Amino acid sequence: MLTSPTARMLSEAIESSPLTQTEIARRVGFPKPNVLSMLKNGQTKVPLTRIPALAQVLEIDQTAFLECALLEYHPEVHEVLTEVLGLPLDPDEEQLVAMYRIANLDGCIRIEGALEMTLENLFELARLAAD
């Protein structure tokens, strides 16, 4: 039985994947598939830098995977990110951030002045409609 939540999440994702471990390792950039075996058995920590690629290849939630690993491997960092930045974002917040990033590809949108007031009014209307 795995005691590492991160290893368990990875192991379940690998077992659910139609890809072989060799194919997963190749796509993620690991030189040998036995690295995956060590990660999913909890013998080696999942490198945080590999979480985005693993999540994409295994089709799992990148945010949940990263949060799981941070909480397990670096609880003090997880606590600071949660306290200071309010992370992780909930799905609605993620959607708003994604929409803003798409709209602001050229970096010219600033949330100030009339736009800020309009957004505040829009959110107030949304809150009233939800009540």
Rank of each mutant, 00 (worst) to 15 (best):
D106Q: 13
F65D: 02
R27K: 15
D90K: 08
I109L: 10
T3R: 13
A98G: 03
T20Y: 04
S11E: 10
S17F: 11
P31F: 09
R27F: 02
E79G: 07
D90H: 07
R110V: 10
V35H: 14
A53L: 07
L96F: 13
I111M: 01
L36Y: 08
T44S: 12
R50H: 13
M9K: 10
V77D: 06
I102P: 01
I51T: 02
R101Y: 04
M117H: 14
G86R: 06
T22M: 12
D131V: 09
A114W: 01
A98I: 01
A130T: 05
H78Q: 10
C108F: 08
Q95V: 07
M1Q: 12
V80W: 10
L87R: 04
T3Q: 13
E59W: 00
G113E: 00
R8F: 09
K40R: 15
E83T: 10
Y100G: 14
L10G: 02
G42Y: 05
I102H: 12
M9V: 02
V35K: 11
D90Q: 05
E12F: 07
T44D: 03
L19Q: 15
R127K: 15
I109C: 02
L122V: 14
R101G: 01
L2W: 07
S11D: 12
G42T: 04
I14Y: 11
